[in-house]
Simulated assay, not measured.
Amino acid sequence: LLKIQLERDSDFFRFLLDELARATALHDVEQKKFSETVQSLGDELCQMTATNKNDMYTWREIFKLYIEAAIFQDIDMTKDPAKESRKRLEKFKDNLLDRLLESNFVLKESKSILKHFLVINYKLIDFQHFQNLNRMAITKILKKHDKKSGLSATEEFSAFIKGNVVFVDGILLSLCQAVQTKLITIVPQPDEFTCPVCFYLAWKPVRLKCTHLFCARCLIKAKKNNITNCFICRSENAIPEATAGNLDTTLSKFMKLNFPQEIEEKERDNAAER
C-alpha cells in the first residue's frame, strides 16, 4: 500500500486557499468600484439626455448598436471568451465610426460619457480575461499536483471552483446586467412601446381592462369596424368599454419626454388618415 506524507500537501492547499481568498477580496473591491462607476456614469447620462434631445437620439442609436453587438452574450466559455468579446467590441467601435455617431453629439459631455462607456466595456473584458486565466491556472496547478502526489485534488476542488466568485461566469453576467439596467435603459428604445396592431409607437396609449396597451388611433379604427374584443387576449368588449379614463397618462408623459420625434411623425400620419 502506497503511503504519502501529506504535510507538504496540506501546506500547498493552505497556500492555495490563502491566495484564492486574497483574489476574492480583490475581486469584491473591484466589483464595488465598477458598480459605483456605472452608477455615476448613469447619473451623468440621465442628466445629459434630459438636457439635449439631439444627443438623446444619438445615444439611442448607439445603444441599439451595442445591444446588437452582444459583446458578452452567447460566447463559448471553453475557448478564449475575452478575445471574442474584444473582437465584438472593436466591431462595435467601427460601427460607431462608420456612422459618425460621436460627431453627431452636440454636448461635449456626451463625448466624454461615450469614452467612459467604452472604458467600462474594456474593463469588463479584462475582468473576463482575469476569470479565464484564474480558471486555467488553478486547473493546471491541481493537475500537476495530482500527477506528482497521486491525489485527486482536481476533482475535489471542482465544486469549490464553481462556487468561488473568482471563477463564476455569472458574476460577469451580473456586471453586464448592471450596464444594461443602469445605463442602456436610461435611453429607452421605441420598439419597447409599440402598438401591437400598427407596430408603431403606441402614442396616446390606451390600456384596456385586460391591461393590454394600444394606441388610441388603432382602437378608434377597431370601434369603427365593430371589433370589440382585445386583439391579444380576446377579452370580451374590452375595446368598446374603454373610455378617456383608460388613457395611460403616466406613460403619455414618459413618451413625450423620450420620443418627441416619433410622436410628431405619428400625429402627422393620424392627421393624414382623417
Rank of each mutant, 00 (worst) to 15 (best):
D43G: 08
F105S: 06
K204R: 15
P260S: 03
L175E: 04
G163S: 13
E90D: 04
I161M: 15
I186K: 09
F34I: 05
Q5P: 09
E84Y: 13
R217Q: 10
K33L: 13
L107E: 07
C198M: 04
L41I: 10
S149L: 03
N121K: 04
A159W: 08
A216W: 04
L124Y: 06
W203Y: 15
L142F: 08
A50T: 09
C195V: 01
M255I: 09
V106L: 07
P81L: 07
N134V: 00
S110N: 07
M255P: 03
D98A: 13
H27Y: 12
F193K: 07
R207V: 12
S174M: 09
L65F: 11
G42H: 06
I263F: 01
D76R: 06
A25G: 08
D80I: 10
A202I: 02
A216K: 11
S110Y: 01
F34R: 06
Q131A: 04
N104F: 05
F254P: 05
I227Q: 04
F254M: 03
P205V: 11
F92M: 01
L6E: 05
I113W: 01
R135K: 14
A271M: 04
E109V: 05
E273R: 12
S10P: 02
K144A: 12
V29Q: 05
V106Q: 12
S252H: 06
A153C: 14
L172P: 01
L124M: 15
N237H: 09
E241V: 03
L41V: 03
M136F: 07
C198H: 01
Q131S: 08
F231N: 05
D18H: 15
E36I: 11
G42R: 10
F214A: 03
K148S: 15
I125S: 05
V119G: 05
R60L: 08
R22K: 14
E7L: 00
M255Q: 07
I67Y: 13
L183H: 02
E156I: 14
T228D: 00
L183Q: 01
V187P: 06
R268T: 07
L26H: 13
S85F: 06
E44F: 00
D9R: 15
V119K: 14
K115G: 07
H129Q: 15
K32C: 08
P196G: 03
M48A: 14
S235V: 02
V38W: 02
I4S: 07
L17C: 14
M255G: 05
I141S: 10
S10M: 13
D9A: 14
W203Q: 06
E19G: 09
A70Q: 13
K83M: 15
P205A: 12
C195S: 01
F199K: 00
E68V: 10
K221Y: 05
E273H: 10
E109G: 03
F259H: 04
I161F: 10
D18M: 12
L101Q: 03
Q39E: 14
L114E: 04
L201F: 02
A21E: 13
A69T: 01
L142D: 04
F130T: 11
N164Q: 08
L41S: 09
E90G: 00
I120Q: 07
T37W: 02
S112Q: 14
I62Q: 01
W203A: 03
D28E: 15
R8N: 14
L175P: 02
D126M: 11
D126G: 11
